[in-house]
Design a protein around this nucleic acid. Structure first.
Length: 256
DNA sequence: GCGACAG
DNA sequence: ATCTTGTCGC
């Protein structure tokens, strides 16, 4: 069993980590947030990247999680894993790690390869308590994790240029679009993420440090992983895979 | 109290 | 997140 799979299984079996009460979940985040570490990410040295995502329906507790490992340079798929489960925690903005991490960790349990970096669909430290799902997963596994979200939860930022590769910093504060966030960052505001344009003329993605990576390296990696679409390839593949898996799961449940 | 609010 | 046809634009 791969080391990462063993770690995932271990944290899943610890009930202390998965409270069913939102108030306790917040306490867990506050208690764990100071364990987040930022370190240089050698982007050129990244070989395998694992993308994660979860799919669920409106009025059905069925859900599916997927992990897709890809070669960061060729973007060739190396391994695909998908699992199904039932919703065990409601969707609460700021706490969705408690909803998505269990199935995601279950998927990681079946991984046979060891990715150098994991890419999560959501935020890392660009979170009210500096502990979004990417940071949460990173700390649990003590592995490099990058957060890549499609919309804002927390933080002030200005709009980056329309060209692919353009970016602006996200600084701490209630979510708000400002005139010049670069000025705020230069003036000492806490930088929590980066708004990155991965495709010219298309809505940007929001990159933030999850754990054991740095912001510049994370943004560089996300841009490399998004040569053709807005969303980085590993997440796109994981999204497609868990979507298919969930539909298949609902279909077999309907048979019974 | 009011508005905001990752997926 | 998901439900969904057509449609505007490069």
């Amino acid at each position: 069993m791969a080391e990462i799979a063993e770690l995932a299984a271990r944290v899943l079996d610890d009930p202390e980590r998965w409270p069913s009460d939102p108030k306790e979940a917040v306490a867990v985040q506050r208690r764990m947030a100071d364990r987040v570490r930022e370190e240089a990410l050698d982007v050129d040295g990244v070989r395998l990247v694992c993308g994660l995502d979860v799919s669920y329906a409106k009025d059905d507790p069925a859900l599916a999680a997927a992990a897709v490992v890809m070669d960061a340079r060729t973007l060739e798929v190396v391994e695909r894993v998908a699992v199904t489960a039932e919703v065990a925690f409601p969707y609460i903005s700021g706490l969705f790690a408690f909803r998505e991490l269990p199935p995601v960790l279950t998927a990681l349990t079946e991984l046979t390869t060891t990715p150098d970096v994991i890419v999560c669909d959501g935020f890392g430290v660009a979170h009210p308590r500096r502990f979004g799902i990417a940071s949460h997963l990173g700390v649990l596994l003590d592995r490099p994790v990058v957060g890549s979200a499609k919309s804002v939860l927390y933080g002030r930022h200005s709009v980056p240029g329309e060209e692919r590769g353009s970016w602006t910093p996200m600084v701490a504060g209630r979510s708000e679009v400002v005139e010049d966030s670069t000025r705020l960052a230069d003036d000492g505001a806490e930088v929590i993420g980066r708004v990155l344009r991965t495709r010219t003329g298309v809505k940007p993605v929001y990159v933030s440090v999850g754990h054991r990576v740095d912001l510049a390296g994370s943004a560089d990696l996300i841009l490399r992983l998004s040569p053709s679409y807005r969303v980085p390839e590993p997440i796109r593949h994981a999204d497609r895979l868990c979507g298919e898996r969930r539909k298949a799961y609902e279909a077999e449940k309907a048979q019974l």
